[in-house]
Design a protein around this nucleic acid. Structure first.
Length: 182
DNA sequence: ATTTACAATATGA
DNA sequence: TCATATTGTAAAT
């Protein structure tokens, strides 16, 4: 016996969010939104017949927030987030990302400075890549130095699209700032 | 002025 | 130990 003990105490609920950009999939634990998949990244989950009221409540907020974010606006309300999958360092980075509002950007090095580890620049990039909740935790607003595009786990095309919706301009790649005499 | 190459540094599997 | 969604410097073009 002993076959199966308590596996993971927390159950996951996966719910679809239909948007003009495709179907996202939101993953919830009993603590809140834990992950968000871009359209096509995960197979469409079997519709859960029984969703706890609390999760249904979070989901409604998530739907609204996601649509606002995709439109380039700042969500007026966010669902509870479960960031427990990350390490302490990653959570500090993710929390720093959440404070970047729509239409604004920060560089990897600025994030590093914000969390008190100015030299962990490269590690910040790694933490961004491990962000389980893209779009709502705006990792796309982190650019490399000189407003170069940087990278994006979900595909650079998504990053460009999201930035464009917020009217943020990105360097072509080789372009640099030229301070013409001033 | 632009491109390439490379070292330095922090974190995580 | 190796890979990473970086950054700054240097040298060649």
């Amino acid at each position: 016996m002993s076959s199966m003990k308590a596996k993971s105490p927390e159950q996951f609920f996966e719910l679809v969010i239909e948007t003009p950009d495709g179907d996202f999939v939101a993953h919830y634990t009993d603590r809140g939104l834990a992950a968000l998949d871009f359209p096509g990244r995960a197979q469409r989950p079997i519709s859960n017949s029984k969703v706890p009221a609390q999760i249904d409540s979070w989901h409604r907020i998530t739907i609204r927030a996601l649509k606002q974010a995709l439109a380039g606006r700042q969500p007026d309300e966010m669902p509870a987030l479960d960031l427990s999958s990350g390490t302490d360092f990653q959570r500090r980075v993710w929390n720093a990302l959440r404070e970047i509002t729509a239409g604004h950007t920060q560089s990897y090095s600025e994030i590093a400075r914000t969390i008190g580890q100015p030299e962990a620049v490269r590690a910040v990039g790694g933490a961004c890549g491990a962000n389980p909740i893209p779009v709502l935790v705006p990792c796309h607003r982190v650019l490399a130095a000189n407003h170069k595009i940087g990278g994006f786990s979900g595909g650079l095309n998504w990053k460009r699209r999201l930035l464009e919706r917020e009217a943020i301009k990105v360097s072509d790649g080789s372009e640099q700032f030229v301070l013409t005499g001033e």
